[in-house]
Amino acid sequence: MRANTFKDIAEYIVTRRSESGDSQESLAIKLAAYDVLFENLDSLTISRWERGKISPNLIRQVSLIEFFNDQPQQLLCDAAFELKQLPSINSFLKMMGQQLNYNHVMGAHPYISQDTISFDKLSKNADEAESMYGWIANYHTNLTKGREIWSKCFIKSLAQADSTDVSFYLVDGLLAGHIFIIKVSEPTFDALSKNQLNDQQLTPEHLIPADEPGCLYMLSTYLGGKHVTEDFLSQLLVTLAETKNNIAFGYKARSDIGVKLMDFLSGEVVHVGEALQEKMEGAKYQGKRRSYVSFKLRRQSLISSSLFLNLTRSCK
């Protein structure tokens, strides 16, 4: 992002168009060629944007900022930048409060007070990481009731890749949450999402370097209470948005909270797993319990989501 600061999207468009030497008409033509989001765009609409009469929707704002070679997350996530159409996240916070107080399968850690606000955040380079890989494997095997059996060696081998992002959240020595994200090519991502490649069939050879274009796939995650929720989500969302090389993000939601989170982020359902009979097993989708629900979220959709913008703006 260049050094300029802007009051709102109207001031941004006026400034960047002036710098580029474009007329409103020529900018409309270039934007229409740049992204299908601007199909049938005309100079009158750009004039109304610049005068603040109307504002482009959030996903259009993301694409427009990228057209001018700026970083949309840096601009839109600045609380000083006015966003007239940003909905509140009260419904999301209410959902999280309900889910995190439900039971440990859904998120609430049974041994930690929900009033706890302090925690230690460890990376995969921490001395304790070795044993925690075993805990993650056990958690996943238990979560799926043995339908998917992971091992400590499997988790460790994937964690060793430079592009793998791992965080552990500890409260008084108890593992109260974790996040485990790998980076793969888009074809591998699609194969994982559709279960053409099972998660436990992943090897380090499937992973790609962080600086290559690809998709972030959340292999495993757990939210153990309100005390880690904001940090957890902020890290997750910023990690996804910080570079154009992250084309998309996705995961297999194996519990209700994972499905509800993607509802708020407007994630695309790619595939669903087998139907389950037990009331508390798997994830509920369209009235049925499923072993998993696979989601895909494009980077542009993420950055323009009200959840991402509200969470990141509140942290600055």
Rank of each mutant, 00 (worst) to 15 (best):
T45L: 08
T45N: 03
T45I: 13
I46F: 01
S47F: 07
R48D: 07
W49H: 09
E50W: 06
R51V: 01
G52F: 02
S55R: 07
I59V: 11
R60G: 02
Q61I: 03
S63W: 05
L64P: 00
E66K: 12
E66T: 11
E66W: 02
F67Y: 10
F67Q: 03
F68R: 08
N69K: 14
Q71P: 07
P72W: 02
C77M: 12
D78K: 01
A80D: 12
A80C: 04
F81I: 00
E82V: 08
P87V: 00
S91G: 03
K94Q: 08
M95D: 15
Y102D: 13
H104K: 12
I112V: 14
Q114M: 10
Q114P: 08
D115L: 13
T116L: 12
I117W: 07
N125L: 09
N125T: 09
E128R: 15
Y133K: 01
W135L: 13
Y139S: 06
N142L: 13
K145D: 13
S151Q: 09
S151C: 06
C153K: 15
C153E: 15
F154R: 06
F154E: 14
F154S: 10
I155T: 05
S157E: 13
S163T: 12
T164G: 08
T164F: 05
D165S: 15
V166Y: 02
S167C: 13
S167L: 13
S167E: 09
Y169G: 01
L170Q: 09
L170R: 10
V171E: 02
D172K: 14
G173R: 03
